[in-house]
Design a protein around this nucleic acid. Structure first.
Lengths: 248, 248
DNA sequence: TGCGCAATCTTGTCTGACAAGGAGACAAAA
DNA sequence: TTTTGTCTCCTTGTCAGACAAGATTGCGCA
């Protein structure tokens, strides 16, 4: 039996896939500003691919709500409204609570130890104030939960939601005191996990994400204009041209 | 000032949009069998559109998990595994509980009355055993909740999840006794809503969806093969050709 | 019966084309 | 000066056709 000794071969990367990942990453990292238009020609030139492939990629960005497309106007990078952000955090709270609760019920000692190892990395990153590093590690924390719990649906949904708020999470985490609060909350969650108290771990997780939401909304409060209501256009970022320089 | 007197015009229906809706409806209604391959050329012919449009539509079906695409093999209609179904119901339970709880907190008397009117329609349909009618009305029940609560994120996610399990819901609802049980549960939920007891309404909703899940899984238990594991192909439906006859 | 190879499909990608909707510039009219 | 009409340019939506390379299938052969 060879199974286990070899990894399955990575399927040949399709042009449209790589293009999607490239643009998605640029959007969630904020390298393309919210509100910026994505013009097919420019994408073709920047990525070196044909319009057909660009358009297929855009359909996917659209379905994942990373861009919004108005017919005959083309896609613009989605600008997160305050309301969207609040809703995403709410759903995240539910899903992550579910995951940690399940995890507490089914994880082996090793798996819990691995979770704690990730937490240690988060703390290490926190010591250096590497904010986006911290957020990235917290995503790995999540990944471990879904890996263990094997909840594909929750994983997909969280991936989608996290992509939309990634930038906001980083901004929120940069708030003074936020890192320390986060660490403490996660510590408490891990205590509950160690004590195999799933209900408690779930409740703590839910509360933790809701705190994160509050911090994020405060960040947004200063300069966000709730609903992009009808007529008004050109709110700062939206007329800036797309910015591809960051991508290889 | 004219604003407010007029509604914004509906955007012109794009070919790719109509095609998407057509195929999506065929899939969720089961007119195209799970596992069936969707061949581009056949879709072009059946829908009377070009390959480019077909391919853009497929990207969206893919993102919504209605088809799964393997590179260079093309899309096949997603076959719901037992595990997927269980997970979808779990997330649905969380989201719908959230919605009914919010609804209970914010709904006006009129809005509650409208919910009860929809429930009356469900009961009417139940009297005639029109199973798919019942499920459709229950979706409208949901729609009313999200309309009132205005939770766009939850609405999107539920729409996506419901599309994937629609067919299963219908099958589960056909089980003897299931309709009566459902009606009773919804009745209890409405009582809680009327009494403005959000926590109770949420808990009842969660339990109700979980009951539905159990019924659905029983339906699936009889003939489902959990994971489509690697090599094995051609499990009954998957070699059946696509079936477009139902669509205009 | 089982295997290997060639013929046939099918997908992935590119190119080029064209109609029609949107946006901005500019001139004419009130 | 503000409003309206017109023109031009840009961009999207859609189509047709082409071709390489990976998948399938069926057939002949052992």
């Amino acid at each position: 039996m060879i199974a286990g000794a070899l990894d399955t071969l990575a399927p040949p990367q399709l042009v449209r896939e790589r293009a999607f990942e490239e643009v998605r990453d640029a959007i969630i990292a904020g390298r393309i500003a919210p509100g910026a238009r994505l013009i097919e020609r420019e994408l073709c030139a920047a990525l070196g691919i044909s319009r057909a492939s660009v358009r297929e990629m855009i359909r996917r960005l659209e379905a994942e709500r990373l861009v919004s497309v108005e017919p005959r106007k083309g896609p613009t990078v989605m600008a997160l409204t305050r309301k969207d952000a609040a809703e995403i955090y709410e759903v995240r709270a539910l899903l992550e609570a579910l995951l940690i609760e399940r995890f507490t019920a089914v994880a082996s000692g090793d798996e819990i130890a691995h979770l704690e190892r990730i937490f240690a990395q988060v703390r290490a990153a926190a010591a250096t104030d590497a904010v986006s590093e911290i957020v990235a590690l917290m995503l790995r924390f999540n990944d471990h939960l879904v890996d263990v719990v094997r909840h594909d649906v929750a994983r997909d949904l969280l991936r989608q939601l996290n992509a939309r708020i990634n930038f906001l999470r980083i901004r929120a985490m940069a708030k003074p005191g936020r890192i320390a609060a986060s660490l403490e909350e996660i510590g408490a969650i891990l205590d509950a996990v160690r004590g195999r108290d799933g209900a408690r771990a779930g409740a703590l997780m839910k509360a933790s994400v809701e705190h994160a939401r509050d911090a994020a909304l405060e960040q947004l409060a200063t300069q966000d204009t709730d609903r992009p209501s009808g007529k008004r256009r050109g709110s700062a970022a939206s007329r800036r041209p797309t910015d591809h320089q960051g991508s290889r």
